[in-house]
Design a binder for these strands. Structure first.
Lengths: 181, 181
DNA sequence: CTTAGTTGTTATCGACTGATAACTAAGCAC
DNA sequence: GTGCTTAGTTATCAGTCGATAACAACTAAG
């Protein structure tokens, strides 16, 4: 079987997808470029060369996650430009938990100046998108993002989303009146 | 100068404090036992031997952070057993950002089964404490934790708490109507 | 003083990891 | 088909890290 050669651009896309899986699982420091390479089926040095460094790959992955969330929200707003609709769209994203978890890793790792800048940019972008799409005032928007962070954390803890752990009592109670379920 | 010898118990306490600083900065995988040892002024192998493994040290640090938050809330509730009061107490904890950030690292790293169990236990404990102290219903409690997660993430991003980064416009707007400021 | 328990250190190792360099081969233009 | 560009590999390394083992030093009891 002859390997199919991809363009550098196609390989970039494929590697970011692989990195999303890997980084969501292990975080920035806890993931090796070799793990990403194996998922994508290429050699480890090639990953490093395509992105320049592991950090650049992580930043690209954060940007990708932000892009996906923005796109999801824009699609939802085209249907109904309300916070409720966007909230439902965000809950849908739990189906691809890696998207949210990799950003959570980014927030936690914001102590690193480079990652901090990237993650603040991402958050700010999403903030303006929500305001632009829904016209919600800052107070409502803050409440929206608060619930979003709770969903994100619960998703990361496997209490929400696919393949949840056996739910402890506190979790079932906390989620009992959850709009989306 | 002769080194002061501490009891193993005192050393444990001191090392958890050091680990809190270090793990908050770099996360679980991104922090070395040597960094923790240097902060505490002991040798790296001694840290490992006292806790058995790096993972045990991290778990001890998570428990400590949970304990501190619980204690803060109990003290606040003795003053006034309302969600508002506990929320103000939580914002006060931003002064010790490491406490919140190390837990955030824990949530993000919940993909590891051992850390996941620990972090779910911690979250559940805090959930019951809030309900017990304030008598709030699940719906109100969920809103409380949602705002708590937003505060935690913004604190980790250095947008809230001590030594903030120069605030981008989205951040000032998001915080404009913030109760605590 | 001596013996024993506890606190701590230095020495060392095997495994791992990101990165670099040198090399190979596929596709495309002419 | 020949030569150039681009995609991808193997080989290798210097640095790092958690862990283990062996040893040293302080303290207290009898």
């Amino acid at each position: 079987m002859t390997r199919t050669r991809l363009t550098a651009q196609e390989r970039h896309v494929q590697l970011v997808a692989a990195a999303l899986q890997a980084f969501a699982q292990g975080g920035y420091a806890g993931t090796t470029t070799d793990q990403v390479a194996r998922i994508a089926g290429v050699s480890q040095p090639y990953v490093v060369r395509l992105f320049g460094s592991k950090q650049e790959l992580f930043l690209a992955t954060l940007r990708y996650a932000g892009d996906r969330i923005e796109a999801k929200w824009r699609a939802a707003a085209a249907d109904d430009p309300t916070l409720e609709r966007l909230g439902a769209a965000y809950e849908d994203l739990l189906a691809e938990r890696e998207l949210l978890v990799v950003l959570l890793h980014g927030y936690a790792a914001a102590g690193d100046p480079v990652i901090g800048d990237a993650v603040r940019d991402c958050y700010g972008r999403l903030y303006w998108v929500v305001r632009e799409l829904t016209g919600a005032d800052p107070d409502q928007t803050r409440g929206f993002f608060a619930m979003g962070m709770l969903i994100t954390v619960l998703g990361s803890m496997r209490v929400l989303g696919p393949d949840p752990v056996p739910l402890p009592p506190w979790a079932t109670e906390l989620l009992s009146a959850f709009p989306g379920d």
